[in-house]
Design a protein around this nucleic acid. Structure first.
Lengths: 143, 143
DNA sequence: CTTTAACCAGACAATTTTATCTGATTTTCA
DNA sequence: TGAAAATCAGATAAAATTGTCTGGTTAAAG
């Protein structure tokens, strides 16, 4: 199946967006994220631990514990989450999978694809959690 | 890892492009494609059998057998190959993975992403094997 | 008519991704 | 202090993807 982001990455993006919109000073437990987004609890927990290693989220143990944003929402870009989970290879490798595809010896779709890929990259780099949060609160109440 | 097309799909695209550029009236055996593109022989063979089911390639058994294009190069679009192998779901599903993402209740990146996705789709739909063949012969000799 | 080179079908195996389980530790709060 | 609610680490399992193997069939060519 064709895919843009891995499940892990999708879940990570969903989860951090959920945290951004639901942390009201308090930490958000994995259990709550799991139920709201229908992601297996242990799985989302693992992903958030990965994001913690990248400093994008923080956590507190114990009762009333959970996860919170590791930085200001305005300082967290979508590309940061993608990079932390899936890496940036897709923005740097040939869409047809030719290992030898270079600007000098480009694959037949190199240029056209390159433009789209750069636009996608720029979008993910421009979007920050605070922008998404606002858009989310305006439009999807269930989030 | 983030990816656009599955390996199967990448291999399929590479293989059919190879056939387009190397069939000189004759069928191209899987063994040759395998060696040229460094794809496991049995694997590329399987993929070509899938593409045969979609009518994109044909084959002849026996000595001097192999694969050839099932239609005129000008009638084979990249999107056809992608559709045959990976399907078109990626052009119709939420990039963040929200099942409930719709135009009425869009996810926070719905519109921006939608534009890029449509452009990618249009590109794959516009590119035909004869165009790629020409570009390939001009630029990458080893193909 | 036998050898050879190929497709083809189906089973099998390895790897990666996705998901689950177990138990340890931490923290709150009654 | 003890129960409850949470993170966290590490092992395990299930599913999907990728890759390999075996043997059968087909067709060309000597």
């Amino acid at each position: 199946m064709t895919v843009i982001f891995s499940k892990k990455c999708e879940y990570g993006l969903q989860a951090i967006l959920y945290i951004a919109t639901h942390t009201m000073g308090k930490a958000v437990p994995a259990e709550k994220i799991s139920q709201a987004l229908k992601i297996p609890r242990e799985f989302v927990s693992k992903i958030l631990q990965d994001l913690k290693a990248s400093g994008l989220v923080g956590s507190v143990k114990g009762k009333a514990g959970g996860f919170f944003l590791g930085k200001e929402p305005s300082q967290i870009k979508l590309i940061d989450i993608v990079e932390a989970i899936d890496g940036l290879e897709m923005f740097n490798s040939c869409v047809l999978g030719f290992p030898e595809c270079t600007p000098d010896a480009p694959c037949p779709v190199h240029n056209k694809w390159g433009i789209l890929r750069d636009q996608a990259y720029q979008m993910l780099k421009a979007e920050t959690l605070d922008q998404l949060k606002e858009r989310t609160l305006n439009k999807i109440s269930k989030l």
